[in-house]
Lab assay of single mutants.
Amino acid sequence: EETYEVDGEEQLKKVEKMLRDRNLDVEVEIHNGKFVIRAK
């Protein structure tokens, strides 16, 4: 499992696309105004 923490939606979209391109399962949560992306 990998976890990424990003600020802002633009970064979120980039990271999310990169992970989905690797066929990973992606979950996004918001913690303290930051996006936390978990990939399995």
Rank of each mutant, 00 (worst) to 15 (best):
E27M: 11
R38M: 11
D25Q: 14
E9Q: 07
K40S: 12
N32S: 00
E10I: 07
E10C: 15
E9Y: 14
E9P: 10
L19E: 04
V26N: 00
R20V: 04
T3V: 15
V15K: 03
T3K: 10
R20P: 02
E1K: 09
E10S: 07
G33M: 00
G8H: 07
K34T: 02
E10A: 08
V28K: 00
D21F: 04
K17F: 00
E29Y: 12
V36L: 11
V36P: 14
F35C: 15
E2V: 11
N23T: 03
E1D: 12
V15F: 09
V15R: 01
H31I: 15
F35T: 15
L12Q: 02
K14W: 13
G8F: 10
E16K: 11
R22N: 05
V6M: 05
V28T: 02
E10H: 06
I30K: 07
L19A: 01
D25E: 13
G33C: 14
R22A: 07
L12F: 08
R20F: 05
I30F: 13
K34S: 11
R20N: 05
V15Q: 01
K14A: 13
A39P: 02
E16L: 15
V36R: 08
G8R: 05
I37T: 09
K17R: 10
L24Q: 04
Y4L: 03
G33W: 00
M18V: 04
E27P: 00
R20W: 04
K40R: 12
F35L: 15
V28N: 01
Y4H: 03
N32A: 00
R38H: 13
K13R: 12
Y4D: 03
E5K: 05
V26I: 13
V6A: 10
R20C: 14
V28D: 01
I37Y: 00
V36G: 05
R20K: 11
Q11H: 04
E29M: 11
K14L: 13
G8T: 15
E5I: 14
V6Y: 03
L12H: 03
V28S: 01
V15D: 02
V15L: 14
E27L: 11
G33Y: 00
R20Q: 06
D21P: 00
L24M: 13
N32W: 00
V26E: 02
E2N: 05
T3L: 12
I30M: 11
E1L: 12
T3S: 09
N23Y: 10
L19H: 01
D7P: 06
L24H: 07
H31E: 08
K14T: 11
K40C: 14
E16I: 15
Y4V: 03
Q11L: 12
R20S: 05
M18F: 07
L24V: 08
E2Y: 12
H31S: 08
A39E: 04
N32P: 00
K34Y: 09
E9R: 09
E5N: 06
Q11Y: 07
I30T: 08
K13L: 08
E1Y: 13
K40L: 10
L24T: 02
R22P: 01
L19W: 00
R38Q: 08
N23G: 15
K14V: 12
K13D: 04
D25I: 13
E10W: 04
R22H: 09
E10Y: 06
E16D: 03
V36D: 05
E29I: 13
D25G: 08
R38T: 14
R38S: 12
I37A: 04
V6I: 09
K40A: 05
E1H: 11
E27Y: 13
K14S: 10
D25A: 10
K34N: 08
V28R: 01
V26Y: 15
I30Y: 14
V26P: 03
R20D: 03
V15N: 02
V36E: 07
R38I: 13
V15M: 11
L24S: 02
L12T: 02
A39H: 04
V15G: 01
I30R: 10
D21I: 03
K13G: 07
M18G: 04
L24N: 02
L19S: 01
V6F: 05
F35A: 14
L19K: 00
V26K: 01
I30Q: 09
E27R: 09
E27V: 14
E16C: 15
E16M: 15
H31Q: 09
